[in-house]
């Protein structure tokens, strides 16, 4: 349940960025969360409701962009979305260790006023 700590970090960054932009209210927060980030989006949503209380983000809407894993197969020089948690290339069956997407744990954008 480290989602609360992660959400607190995200809120801290959002508050700082809002101040830098001269804003006083956060209306929306958009996150990009990779399938392989070790974070559960539902738990993040729950944590968001808790950490924003009493802040300028109390009424903000949270949007989570969930990024599926994409691997690169060096054999076929091909990016592919694995069918399950074994990252097997669908063309040559080689297991990929090159994850090109799906590890994201980042803030994408904010809407402030």
């Amino acid at each position: 349940m480290h989602e609360v700590a992660i959400m607190q970090n995200a809120l801290d960054i959002a508050l700082q960025q809002t101040r830098l932009a001269g804003g006083s209210q956060i209306h929306a927060l958009k996150l990009r969360i990779g399938e392989l980030s070790g974070v559960v989006p539902e738990a993040l949503e729950f944590a968001f409701d808790v950490v924003v209380q009493g802040t300028i983000a109390a009424d903000a809407h949270l949007e989570i962009d969930y990024i599926p894993v994409v691997c690169h197969c060096s054999n076929c020089d091909l990016d592919f979305q694995p069918a399950n948690l074994v990252y097997e290339c669908y063309q040559c069956d080689q297991i990929s260790i090159d994850v090109v997407r799906g590890q994201e744990l980042e803030i994408a954008s904010l809407e402030v006023s």
């Binding site: 960054i13 959002a14 960025q17 809002t18 932009a21 804003g23 209306h27 980042e106 803030i107 994408a108 954008s109 904010l110 809407e111 402030v112 006023s113």
Partner: peptide, 8 residues
């Protein structure tokens, strides 16, 4: 409303 693209 102002949109800030943070990407952090």
């Amino acid at each position: 409303l102002k949109q800030i693209n943070v990407v952090q």
